[in-house]
């Protein structure tokens, strides 16, 4: 890990450890869940060059699965989270096998359409509770002795999950696997001619991304004790694209910064209704036209250091 990234990692960890002294912890937990979600998404687009416009299906599916497991089956939280994550991984396997068959723009449209199909399924399915969602999900006792209804226990758990997911993404990007993924992004034909089974690499990246998005979704369901249709809707898929784009596509810390900014903005603009959507659209347009490196990408470029 280069020194610049070590410093950034230490700063990020320190921020999330100290911030609850001044900021509302539930807000920070939300930010960490979305940051993990955006990191998972960035793994796919930033390093594999695959734009998924349906990532909400993994977040939402895992949320529903974890909430159902915890509330109806009485799973302890660690198993509820694992179960939700496994469901997202399975969904990643099935949708990946279909979506990987098309490239570029078609991949984006396919994932969007698949996610919409999942959305309509959850809208009608009995176990999701339709418009109400699954409410009052018990947080339970982690490993049988840590009571997660205590906000600090919950905060610590979310922090550990977020840091674990973040480091896993970091490790993946910098492994030989991640390097091949980058090669595929830069020039797919050339990677193919060098003997790499391109589709297998893409599939693995897609599944890993789905799994981590699922981890974020299950954790979020326990934090808010709620799984609802919002998390499966296409606008959520758009939001994670926005977070990653704003923070910096293909940067290590970009998605975290992007997620934090977008969540903060939503928090403060919430009472203004449609202005949240409008300002998100404006940020999209500005980022694409004039700011394609994103916040962290620009900082890294200015410091001439990888971030």
């Amino acid at each position: 890990m280069p020194r610049s990234q070590k410093i950034a990692l230490a700063l990020m960890a320190a921020f999330f450890l100290l911030a609850p002294l001044v900021l509302y912890p539930v807000f920070l937990m939300k930010a960490m869940c979305f940051a993990l979600f955006a990191c998972a998404f960035n793994l796919l687009i930033g390093f594999g060059g695959l734009l998924s416009f349906g990532h909400a299906m993994f977040l939402g599916t895992a949320g529903y699965a974890a909430a159902h497991a915890a509330k109806v089956w009485g799973f302890p939280p660690e198993f509820a989270i694992l179960f939700g994550t496994a469901c997202a991984a399975l969904l990643g396997l099935v949708t990946g096998l279909l979506a990987i068959r098309r490239q570029g723009i078609y991949f984006a449209m396919t994932t969007l359409a698949l996610a919409q199909m999942i959305y309509f399924y959850y809208l009608q399915a009995a176990f999701t509770g339709g418009e109400d969602g699954i409410q009052a999900v018990p947080r339970g006792m982690l490993f049988g002795f840590i009571d997660l209804s205590n906000v600090w226990a919950m905060y610590g758990t979310v922090f550990v999950i977020f840091m674990g997911g973040f480091l896993l993404v970091y490790r993946t990007i910098h492994s030989p696997f991640g390097q091949v993924l980058k090669a595929i992004r830069e020039n797919e034909q050339r990677a193919l001619s060098l003997g790499y089974d391109v589709n297998r690499y893409k599939m693995l990246a897609y599944m890993l991304s789905a799994t981590l998005a699922g981890l974020a979704g299950s954790t979020k369901a326990l934090v808010f004790q709620l799984a609802s249709l919002t998390d499966v809707h296409w606008s959520m898929s758009g939001e994670v694209v926005l977070m990653t784009l704003l923070g910096g596509l293909g940067t290590v810390f970009g998605p975290v910064v992007g997620a934090f900014i977008v969540i903060t903005m939503e928090n403060y603009l919430a009472q203004l209704g449609a202005w949240v959507t409008i300002s998100q659209g404006v940020i999209f347009v500005i980022c694409v036209l004039a700011f394609r490196r994103g916040v962290v990408g620009e900082i890294g470029n200015f410091l001439k250091k990888p971030l």
Partner: peptide
């Protein structure tokens, strides 16, 4: 992909303004 992202942003703006 940037064309897709730009037009998505524009769609959000237009729909938001009309709403």
């Amino acid at each position: 992909l940037y064309g897709l992202l730009l037009t998505f942003g524009l769609a959000l703006i237009i729909q938001g303004l009309f709403r």
